[in-house]
Design a binder for these strands. Structure first.
Length: 497
RNA sequence: GGCCUUAUCGUCUAACGGUUAGGACAUCGGCUUUUCAAGCCGGUAAUCCGGGUUCGAUUCCCGGUAGGGUCACCA
């Protein structure tokens, strides 16, 4: 058989293997995204596997939360704990017999042995190394005649050759490590569960994983992994190291302690999943061209391991906000309406003026006022949306333009006269012609005559009750002739009170 | 402390020895203008430092410096 052909035909299998220790933050999601994108690009298989071998750190409900997060983002898997697959089960805690099988192979080969030390003894060794300012290495204390492994003690891999290690990384190229990176690490803990170091290698082998993507904190463990592949005499998968994601303030790697948020919080604040994907894709990878906005589909098409960055990037919310806005613009009208509806709070939905027709009309207006992802939430919270659905409440002095020249004693009367004249002009427009262009056309000469501020400010304020809002022509068209005139008439009533 | 790894505008980045070092976000200015947005146009702003290799270094090599990682019965 042609060897090269065989390599080219290799089916890509990637996996995302989180531990159920809580919510998912930026870093974890990005790892999932790249592994998923790579599998999808090459029509491969993407596996979701849960690494629940640390019972102490496990957080109840995490698995569902992880699944919910991935589903929101549109990162779908072909095999996983919820849907099963040819390599079931996909929870490591249910695969203990598999790990034991491989552990026994290693014991038989003389490449694994029981660790007889107590916690205190081990800590003393560690302390001593620390005081001497040398790295702690268990193999310096390797017991001469270890007892038979009965499952109550940890099982360690016996590193047979202490040497420099060199390997190929799909992103970083040639990586190397000194001999102190090699140590007799624990395969199976005294509680019977395997360590990550052992379990992931066995599972990747069993599940046929071809490409492993993980963050760079694992680089220093790779020599140990390679020693285990060799001990088991199995083929190494391709490895791709992902750059770290740093917190924006400070230089530390972004973690939950640094305020890395649950990704689902972004969903709840109004960020779109495709914006999140776009944003995450660009922390740690960039395309050949200068495109900034990509759909998930486009991302999958052009994603490439070779263009993953070497150095870490910072999480920059301002960029995410911009990307989110760009994706909001790309939505169809229907999707935009759906988005607006989703974030309008229940109390507003109860208002008499809340209709499908009104939502349709105001959607573009609201969208252009959103700059941050969470703006839709704060606009609703600040009552900046209510006036579309109900007559605003305000005080008569608010109707005066800040730099208005109306100072006369009869200023209320004067202003109500202006507004009344506006009403007269509006009445001349037929119902079917009541567009913002026509409205502007008919009122404009009058605003020139009196002063724009003194006509347009009160008009806009009467319609919206807000200092900042869309212009009065746009609002008039949205409300329609009848409602517009009603609101202006109410302003006159208020002025005359 | 050992080992590993990284280094371009404030931020995310492009450049695979030869560019006026490009783009995006942010910022600043202008246009528009009835407020707020949006939109359009434009500006400021970067190769960590020091050696080498080369006709020529952001790019290759070495050394420093700085950041990050790791040295768990966590992943």
């Amino acid at each position: 058989m042609n060897h090269n052909m065989n390599i080219n035909k290799e089916k890509v299998v990637t996996r995302f293997a989180p531990s159920p220790t809580g919510y998912m933050h930026i870093g974890g999601v990005r790892t999932a995204l790249y592994a998923w994108a790579y599998a999808r690009k090459y029509n491969g298989t993407f596996i979701l596997r849960i690494e629940d071998t640390d019972k102490d750190r496990e957080v109840k409900g995490s698995i569902n939360h992880i699944i919910e997060t991935l589903k929101w983002l549109g990162i779908n898997w072909d095999e996983g704990p919820d849907i099963g697959g040819p390599h079931m089960p996909y929870l490591q805690s249910e695969r203990l017999n598999i790990y034991k099988k491989y552990a026994n192979i290693l014991i038989e080969k003389g490449l694994a042995y029981a660790d007889p030390y107590t916690e205190e003894e081990l800590n003393a060794f560690r302390k001593k190394a620390e005081n001497e300012k040398i790295p702690f290495l268990y193999r310096n204390h390797r017991p001469e005649n270890p007892p038979d492994w009965d499952g109550t003690m940890p099982l360690r891999l016996k590193i047979k050759e202490i040497k420099n290690t060199e390997w190929h990384d799909e992103v970083r190229g040639t990586l190397k490590a000194g001999p102190e990176a090699l140590d007799d690490f624990i395969l199976i803990k005294s509680d019977g569960y395997p360590t990550y170091n052992f379990a992931h290698i066995i599972d990747d082998l069993e599940m046929g994983v071809t490409h492993i993507m993980r963050a760079d904190e694992f680089i220093s463990s790779v020599p140990k992994f390679l020693a285990l592949y060799d001990a088991l005499d199995i083929e190494r998968p391709h490895m791709a190291t992902l750059p770290p994601i740093m917190a924006l303030d400070g230089k530390k790697k972004l973690g939950k302690r640094d305020g890395a948020k649950d990704i689902l919080e972004y969903r709840d604040e109004g960020y779109l999943p495709e914006a999140m994907i776009n944003f995450l894709a660009y922390i740690g990878w960039s395309p050949e061209d200068e495109r900034e906005i990509l759909s998930p589909k486009e991302f999958v098409e052009i994603f490439d391991l070779a263009r993953i960055h070497h150095s870490g990037g910072k999480f920059n919310v301002e960029k995410l906000d911009w990307i989110n806005k760009e994706h909001l613009k790309l939505l169809s009208i229907d999707e935009q309406e759906k988005y607006i509806r989703k974030f309008i709070p229940e109390n507003i939905k109860q208002l008499p003026g809340y209709t499908d027709e009104m939502i349709k009309k105001i959607t573009p207006l609201i969208l252009e006022r959103i700059s941050k992802g969470s703006d839709i939430i704060s606009m609703a919270g600040n009552h900046e949306l209510n006036y579309f659905f109900e007559q605003p409440v305000y005080d008569k002095n608010s109707l005066f333009f800040k730099s208005s020249k109306i100072n006369e004693a009869n200023k209320y009367e004067l202003l109500s006269k202006y507004i009344n004249n506006v009403i007269l002009l509006l009445n001349n427009i037929s119902d079917t012609d009541f567009t913002k262009e026509k409205i502007k056309e008919s009122i404009w000469p009058y605003t020139e005559e009196i002063g724009r501020g003194d006509i347009l400010w009160p008009m806009r304020y009467a319609l919206s009750g807000l200092e900042k809002s869309p212009d009065p022509f746009v609002l008039s068209e949205i409300f329609g002739k009848e409602e517009t005139i009603a609101r202006l008439n109410l302003a006159i009533q208020i002025l005359r009170k």
